Amino acid sequence: MGFDPHEPEQRSQLKDALTAADITVGELWLRYFSMTGSAGEYEVQAYLQGLISLPVIQRDLLALACNEMIAEKPPLHAPYADQMKGTGPSGPSSGR
C-alpha cells in the first residue's frame, strides 16, 4: 500500500464535519463499525489525530458513517416569531 496524497485532506475534512455536527469519535466509530468497518475505536481516534493511516475503503466508510449521521440530524434554523410557543413580546402568553 502506497502513500495517498489525498489522505491528509480527507482526514481534515472529516474532522471538520464531525466538529460542525457535534459527533463524537465514539458515535462515529459505532456507526462505522456497524457498517462493516474493521478499524477499532482507538485506531479511528489515532487516524483522526494523524498518527496512523487507514486504507481508502476504511476512510470512505468513516466518511459514509459521518455523512449518514449528519443527514439524520434535524436542520438548524432560526425560528420565526410565530414559531415561538408560549412567548410574546412581553413574555409568556396566557391561554394561547
Results as ranks from 00 to 15, higher is better:
P75I: 13
H77N: 02
P75T: 13
A46D: 15
I70Q: 11
A71P: 02
L61W: 05
Q58H: 07
C66P: 00
M69F: 02
G88N: 01
G88V: 04
L61Q: 15
N67E: 09
Y47M: 07
K73D: 00
L76F: 11
E72M: 12
P55I: 03
I52N: 08
P75A: 12
A78S: 06
Q83C: 01
D82I: 00
G88L: 01
L54S: 06
A65V: 04
A71Q: 13
D82S: 05
H77A: 12
I70R: 14
L51Y: 03
K73F: 02
I57W: 06
D82F: 08
Y80L: 12
M84S: 00
P75Y: 05
G50A: 10
S53N: 14
P79G: 00
P74H: 07
M84E: 02
G86E: 05
S90P: 00
L48S: 07
I70W: 04
Y80M: 05
C66H: 10
A65C: 07
L62K: 02
N67P: 00
A81P: 05
L54I: 10
L61D: 08
M84V: 15
E72G: 14
Y47F: 15
I57S: 14
L54K: 10
L48I: 03
G88F: 01
T87M: 14
A46P: 01
P55R: 08
M69L: 11
G86C: 04
I70C: 08
D82E: 11
I70M: 08
C66T: 15
C66D: 01
Q49C: 08
P89C: 00
A46F: 07
L48W: 05
A65N: 04
L64R: 15
Q83D: 11
A81S: 04
N67M: 07
A71N: 12
L54A: 09
R59I: 15
A78V: 11
S90V: 07
D82Y: 09
Q49L: 13
L64N: 11
E68I: 01
Y80F: 04
Q58Y: 02
G50P: 09
S53C: 04
S53H: 13
G86H: 05
T87Y: 14
P79R: 06
M84C: 10
H77S: 12
Q49R: 15
A63T: 14
E68H: 10
K85S: 11
E72L: 13
G88M: 00
G50Y: 10
A63V: 10
G50Q: 11
R59G: 12
H77F: 14
C66E: 12
K85I: 15
A78N: 07
A71G: 09
N67C: 02
L54G: 07
T87S: 10
G86S: 04
P75W: 03
E72Y: 05
V56L: 14
V56M: 09
Q83P: 00
G50V: 11
A81C: 00
L51I: 03
Q83G: 11
L54P: 12
P55M: 06
I52W: 08
N67Y: 04
K73N: 08
P75S: 10
L51W: 05
K73Q: 15
L62E: 03
L48E: 05
P55L: 10
D60P: 00
A65D: 03
P74S: 08
A46I: 00
P74F: 02
A63Y: 02
R59F: 02
E68G: 04
L64Y: 09
L76I: 15
D60H: 13
K73A: 09
I57Q: 14
L51C: 01
K85G: 02
D82A: 05
D82Q: 06
P75D: 09
Q83W: 04
